[in-house]
């Protein structure tokens, strides 16, 4: 047999631990997926650079919170402000010219942006890995024989708060309404006096801020802060797809589902099965229900 299967265990505490670990991982996926969803929903761009954005956020968190040793809240504020500025830069500098270009050209340009960020981070921060962040409470408590870290609960809370915030923003604010209008039909929106340019800029800024939040949170749970953390961007794809790329709430559900599945695959089958299982789940969801569990259907006109 080419592929070796691990042992299945029926020990409830092990499974509980896997479930908790999966939910924690899922919360992180949800943060990342939320970034994808924000951009895809409004601008129809699949942002393959989101992992790098997140890495940028983690490194900036390192700079502002550890190296500069700013007060936590001030540091986070500065971090998010800088990320927001980067988001505007991405839109006004690059993505603005790409409106109306082919789908794959835009995917490729996000890959180009990813490459630039990766290279610049290497140049300015060097390849040495840094210790992970330790600004949030580090302890843990036991429940039914399984350990739960405080950090994971905080991450979960932050994600839920973000989703709620965006939900309210899209549903009840004027700008949110305009963003949804542009997502629906850019030309009609422009004809109504909505400036698509402004909406897109806001979208990128919001996605960057989410990446900042994600970097800050992920910086607390990753093994170490180095260039490998960009991989979280790709690993969160199944979560975004399973939840539906156009659904904010879907990203959190998809994140949790994929996180738990991955963690169980990890625990029962072995680490190497983690990604293939997650991507297989994504694959099945794509074939059965391409718009994900909660995504909206787009009709195509011939």
């Amino acid at each position: 047999m080419l592929l070796a299967f691990g042992n299945f265990t029926a020990d409830p505490s092990v499974n509980l631990q896997l479930l908790i670990g999966g939910l924690a991982l899922g919360a992180i996926y949800a943060v990342v997926a939320l970034g994808f969803v924000l951009v895809y929903k409004s601008t129809d761009v699949l942002n393959l650079a989101h992992g790098e954005f997140l890495m940028l956020g983690a490194y900036f968190a390192l700079t502002f919170l550890i190296s500069e040793n700013l007060n936590f809240f001030l540091g986070v504020f500065v971090l998010l402000l800088v990320m927001l500025a980067f988001g505007l830069l991405v839109h006004y500098g690059i993505m603005r010219r790409m409106v109306g270009q082919g789908f794959f050209a835009i995917v490729l340009i996000t890959l180009g942006i990813a490459t630039i960020i990766r290279a610049l981070l290497l140049i300015f921060y060097g390849p040495t890995e840094r210790a992970r962040l330790d600004l949030l409470p580090q302890g843990s408590f036991e429940i039914g024989g399984a350990t739960v870290r405080y950090v994971d609960i905080i991450i979960f809370g932050v994600v839920a708060a973000c989703v709620l915030l965006f939900f309210v923003f899209f549903k009840y604010t004027r700008l949110g309404l305009h963003m949804r209008a542009v997502a629906d039909d850019i030309e009609a929106a422009a004809a109504m006096g909505i400036d698509p340019d402004k909406v897109y800029a806001m979208t990128w800024a919001a996605a960057m801020v989410m990446a900042g939040v994600g970097g800050l949170l992920f910086g607390h749970v990753t093994g170490a802060i180095d260039r490998s953390i960009e991989a979280i961007g790709l690993r969160a794809f199944p979560a975004a797809v399973v939840g539906g790329l156009t659904s904010l709430g879907g990203s959190i559900v998809g994140g949790l589902v994929v996180g738990v599945i991955e963690q169980f695959a990890n625990g029962h089958l072995g680490t190497k099965w983690r990604e293939p299982v997650a991507f297989s789940v994504m694959f099945v969801v794509l074939l059965v229900r391409p718009t994900g569990l909660w995504g909206r259907k787009d009709l195509e006109r011939v």
Binding site: R97, A105, G112, T115, I116, A119, I123
Partner: peptide, 17 residues
């Protein structure tokens, strides 16, 4: 090698634009 990578990424962006 990092600058090499940056040049490539930058070129991708510039060429696509």
């Amino acid at each position: 090698s990092e600058i090499d990578l940056a040049i490539k990424g930058f070129l991708v962006v510039v060429i696509l634009m």
